[in-house]
Design a protein around this nucleic acid. Sequence first.
DNA 1: TGCCAGGGCTGGG
DNA 2: CCCAGCCATGGC
Length: 292
Amino acid sequence: MIDAGTTAVLPVRDYDLAATLGCGQAFRWAQRDGAWEGVIDQRWVRLRSIERGIEATTAHAANDWNWLTDYLQTDLDLGSVLLTFPDDEPMRAAVAHCRGLRLLRQDPWECLASFILSSTKQIVQIQQIIALLCERFGEPLTTPPGAILTRAFPTAERLARASEVELRACKMGFRAPSLLAAARRIASRELDLDSLRHLDVNAAREALVSLRGVGNKIANCALLFAYGFQQAFPIDVWVMKALRQLYFPKRRPTPQRLLNFTSTHFGPNAGYAQQYLFHYMRTRHENPDEQR
DNA sequence: TGCCAGGGCTGGG
DNA sequence: CCCAGCCATGGC
């Protein structure tokens, strides 16, 4: 017996699905025929923006949709978050450029593993590496015919049993030992990612940074995109470019001064503001006619 | 072709 | 504390 699948509408406004799913916080969303296909934990799902909100279709019969509203954060009052952003020219431009961009609430292991693979890689390449990883180590899912994504993100337990050679074959290069070591520490229960939810942001960061190949940037990505610590402020080359060009066009602040600035200037939702700057810097010169 | 990409680690000033 | 070099790989 095959489940018929289910469609529901999540009522929401101020939600830019394309910006949210395509801004480089998650790496497994595929756009096709005006909809977004993805996998959330063990569930295949297709999303489409409609007038009233977001139309969601799953492959299973679904009773509740909490797993999806939690992931998409549709219940968040975005307006009240935007009000906490600094009232300066760069921030106004970034918000105007990508209004409706949301932060997701991802699975900690998938998010952490994904960003371990992200270092000095372009987003397209990160997507390719993760696609290979899922294809080779992910559990098959219930999907409709013709689905692009058919497997779950690999568990830490499964990757812990892989070899470094097998991982390198997924094109991840020098990141392979880091991913393998993280998978082993988490599979062995030496590090419990779920327990970090109950810590404050600094204690949670300290735990993440104890992993080989995880520094402040990658830890902040996991804290922001999986745990919902909205003050966590990842600084990659794009955000650094935003800070230098938009906030410090003349001086060249030391890393320590920069850290001090970002932790005070952007307020309690600094990480949220950071994602607006990131997406703004990456897309502000695109010709609107070339976006599908 | 050469430069760069959602970095982190190590070893030197 | 700060910085350069190194680590794979592929897009542009």
